[in-house]
């Protein structure tokens, strides 16, 4: 038989508890650490993507400039989009593991009351 380890109704704190945690310093810190990373980085990669799309769309001459052999600026910029995606992914995981998870776990343990 399947057993559900926890259901929200068993372990969920009452409404006031959510409001209290939301107002706590730890939670404010967690929210700040998340937003401080994801908002600027999202803005950055979207701007970089948009710049790339606009160059590919409206600056054909520049993008077709050859750099090494048949490899041109456009191909290098395109491959750099891959590189930036991989780099941002790695940086975010490091940020989350180091700065977000410990705090989230602490708050979760307090809320669920089982010290986990």
């Amino acid at each position: 038989m399947s057993t559900v380890e926890h259901t929200p109704s068993e372990s969920a704190p009452d409404a006031q508890k959510w409001v209290d945690v939301q107002a706590s310093d730890d939670f404010a810190q967690l929210k700040h650490r998340l937003r401080k990373f994801v908002f600027p980085v999202s803005g950055l990669f979207l701007a970089w993507y948009l710049l790339y799309v606009l160059l590919a769309d409206y600056a054909h001459g520049f993008m077709s400039t050859k750099v090494i052999g048949n490899i041109n600026v456009g191909l290098i910029f395109g491959l750099l989009q891959f590189v930036s995606t991989f780099v941002i992914t790695t940086l975010y995981v490091r940020h989350a593991n180091k700065h977000l998870d410990p705090l989230a776990e602490k708050l979760r343990g307090e809320l669920e009351g089982d010290g986990k």
Binding site: S2, E5, A12, K31, L111
Partner: peptide
């Protein structure tokens, strides 16, 4: 907001 950031009260895995 608290659940989304902390995972408190989130649906857990089912142990068979």
């Amino acid at each position: 907001e608290v659940r989304s950031l902390t995972g408190a009260g989130a649906e857990k895995a089912i142990a068979h």
